[in-house]
Amino acid sequence: MLDFTKSSAPAFQNLTPAQFAEGRQQPGAVLLDVRRPDEFAAGHLPGAFNLDVTASDFGPRVAALDKTRPTYVYCRSGARSASAAGQLATAGFAQVANLLGGVLDWPGALTTK
């Protein structure tokens, strides 16, 4: 018999923009933009690096990251980053957070540098 009261999906946190901004300030935090490279180039959060969640090499590139560092993930609206956050959690990342609403809801300035 199936037990629907327990989730087998690895956990990650969905954070509001304010919670996300506060959390990513912790020492060692990684800020990961999972949009396409062209979207990233058009504007991203300062300090972020880009790994396209839709790219065929996303899994191997994620595997090379430090799983012990807090990882903050975002995209345009929060859908792709939620998928990426689930993949990171499944891959054994200890602390993963997803930005609810993505950059569409981000109150701060984006950078192209």
Rank of each mutant, 00 (worst) to 15 (best):
T5R: 11
G108R: 07
A79L: 11
F40C: 02
V53K: 05
L32G: 01
A41P: 10
T111Y: 11
A55Y: 09
N98L: 02
G101T: 04
D52K: 03
R24E: 11
L65I: 07
D105W: 04
G59Q: 14
E22M: 05
G92P: 06
S77H: 14
A11L: 11
D38V: 10
R76V: 08
E39W: 00
L51D: 08
G102W: 13
G108Y: 05
A55Q: 09
D57S: 11
R36E: 12
Q25D: 02
D66H: 14
A91N: 04
R35Q: 14
P37G: 01
L100P: 02
F40D: 02
E39A: 15
A63S: 13
G86K: 13
R61F: 04
A97V: 04
H44Q: 06
T16L: 08
C75V: 09
L15R: 12
P27H: 00
A97G: 15
V62T: 11
R35A: 10
A41N: 13
A55E: 12
A55K: 02
T71A: 07
G86H: 15
G86V: 10
A41T: 14
S56P: 11
A48M: 09
G102D: 07
D38P: 04
A91Q: 12
T90N: 14
S56A: 15
P37E: 08
P46N: 04
V53N: 12
Y74K: 02
W106Q: 05
A84E: 06
G92C: 00
A94I: 11
Q95P: 04
S56D: 15
A63D: 14
G92F: 05
V96P: 10
T90F: 15
A79K: 14
V30E: 09
A89R: 12
A91P: 03
A48V: 09
W106N: 01
A41Q: 15
R61P: 02
F93C: 01
Y72R: 02
F58L: 07
R69G: 00
Y72I: 01
V53A: 15
G92I: 09
S77V: 13
V62D: 01
A29K: 01
G47L: 03
T111D: 07
L45H: 05
T68L: 06
T16G: 01
W106S: 01
T16D: 09
R80T: 10
A84N: 07
K67W: 02
D33S: 09
Y72G: 05
Y74P: 00
R76E: 11
G43E: 14
V103L: 12
G102F: 09
N14G: 03
A42M: 05
G59S: 14
P46Y: 01
F49D: 05
A63G: 07
A89P: 03
P27R: 01
K67L: 00
P27F: 04
L2N: 12
F49P: 05
T112N: 10
G23D: 12
N98E: 10
R35I: 08
F12A: 00
S8A: 12
R24N: 02
F93R: 03
Q87T: 14
A64F: 00
Q95I: 00
A18I: 00
T111P: 04
G92D: 03
P37Q: 07
G78C: 06
H44S: 11
A29V: 05
Q87M: 14
A85P: 11
L45M: 15
S81P: 02
Y72C: 01
N98A: 06
D3C: 02
S7C: 03
